[in-house]
Amino acid sequence: MWKWLHPYAKADRAYQLCNTLLPYFAVITVVCLVVGWVWGLAFAPADYQQKDSYRIIFIHVPSAILSMGAYSSMAIAAIVALVWQLRNAELAVIAIAPVGAAMTAIALITGAAWGKPMWGAWWVWDARLTSELILLFLYLGVLSLYHAFEDKKAAGKAACILAIVGVINLPIIHFSVEWWNTLHQGATITKFDTSAIDPSMLWPLFINIAGFAGFVGVISLIRLKNEILQREKHRPWVRSLVSRG
């Protein structure tokens, strides 16, 4: 593990790695999102019950999945940062956090918009929506903790600790909310059963998930590049990079 990671402990190598990966992620994003959205929004058949309003799942479901995915990758980066003392992994935590928060916000907003025609209310204390809301609070906690510190070195470490504490709590929170919900409301809310979904809707959904994943990757990599440059701006390699244009 150490041998494999070690070259990327150096900031300039990590920066190069970002540059190499960026085009692949960009291609995945553009291709998948264009194909996925056109297929999902225009060609996939309408649902027999929900009519065309179900089409919001092509945004809602990918963003909800990615909000969790981004949190776990953030937590993995945080563990790497604290265990192997890698500054670049700390920067990755900070690079991913706002992207994940944005995904969570998108999932919440689209969830509310979908809830209006389906449940007749903008907000319902459904287990998944509630967990998603708490996830947003966790993201905002990491971000506001990072920005509260003046010394960015300490800020990165503190954010990492909080991200790890959060990821340990996340399953507990999810389980407790799920349990609370069944206790208080029973199964009154129709849950969207993924296995019952028609393949003609499932394929565009998968493609959209891949597209969203690529999008999160692209934005995080760009942010990571910026963070590395910001921190290393006095180093010779950054200066030569700037002077080259």
Binding site: G141, L145, I172, I173, F175
Partner: peptide, 10 residues
């Protein structure tokens, strides 16, 4: 309080 209260939910 912002950091801690969400963790108190369970």
């Amino acid at each position: 309080s912002l950091l801690v209260l969400p963790l108190y939910i369970p």
